[in-house]
């Protein structure tokens, strides 16, 4: 099931064997035969990749919304905050960016595709696209509008450029009318795109 717009690259199950796909098989086989990597390690990596996704980042955001001490830790050391709830990215230098009534944060990697993937999974194509990387720093409001996000002129938009050594996680504003919700309920409001900063969190009605 796909709920996203028509892709540039098809949702195909492997598709035809291109030269680059042949190269993928060739390099992987050689690395395994030479003992550089092992089958078991590779399968463990596939499993780790499957466990990653926006549900991890959403847990952090929901906890930050609920627990002032955790929000404080996220502000000071987001890597430690991830680690403290058992999330994987101990190696990642993570900065949490809090959206407020005055400031809206959005994340890009202008040079390539750096992204907090242990917390959000693999990035969507558009995040890696030439157009996003180029345009969001030049005209962020126009790009946000493509996602249906329009912000009042009084809100300052800050664009953060990721690097190999530094990744960002946006903490969207907590939606109104969610007082008394538990962390699990709140986490359902926190989408991948809201943690990149291109949309707000879902509303109670939008769930």
């Amino acid at each position: 099931m796909h709920d996203h717009p028509h892709p540039n690259q098809p949702d195909e199950e492997d598709g035809p064997f291109t030269e680059y796909r042949l190269l993928e098989v060739a390099l992987r086989e050689l690395l395994i035969e030479k003992g550089v990597i092992m089958h078991a390690e590779l399968h463990k990596t596939y499993q780790m990749m499957d466990d990653r996704g926006p549900h991890n980042g959403a847990r952090m955001v929901a906890k930050a919304w609920s627990d002032p001490a955790y929000l404080d830790l996220m502000r000071r050391d987001a890597t430690a905050a991830a680690k403290s709830i058992g999330l994987e990215p101990t190696w990642l230098n993570l900065i949490a960016l809090e959206n407020t009534d005055a400031v809206h944060n959005v994340v890009v990697c202008t040079l390539c595709s750096c992204y907090p993937w242990p917390l959000l999974g693999l990035p969507p194509d558009w995040y890696k696209s030439r157009a996003y990387r180029s345009d969001v720093v030049q005209n962020p409001r126009k790009v946000l509008a493509e996602f249906g996000t329009t912000l009042p002129e009084t809100v300052e938009v800050r664009v953060h450029d990721s690097s190999a050594d530094m990744r960002y996680l946006v903490v969207p504003k907590r939606p109104e009318g969610t007082e008394g919700w538990c962390e699990e309920q709140l986490a359902e409001l926190v989408t991948r795109d809201s943690m990149i900063g291109v949309v707000p969190a879902l509303t109670k009605e939008g769930l």
Binding site: P7, N8, V108, P124, S129, N139
Partner: peptide, 14 residues
């Protein structure tokens, strides 16, 4: 590519 307007942006993915 930062700031080099080059292509229309469309938020698609596969």
């Amino acid at each position: 590519l930062g700031g080099v307007l080059c292509e229309p942006f469309a938020p698609d993915e596969h």
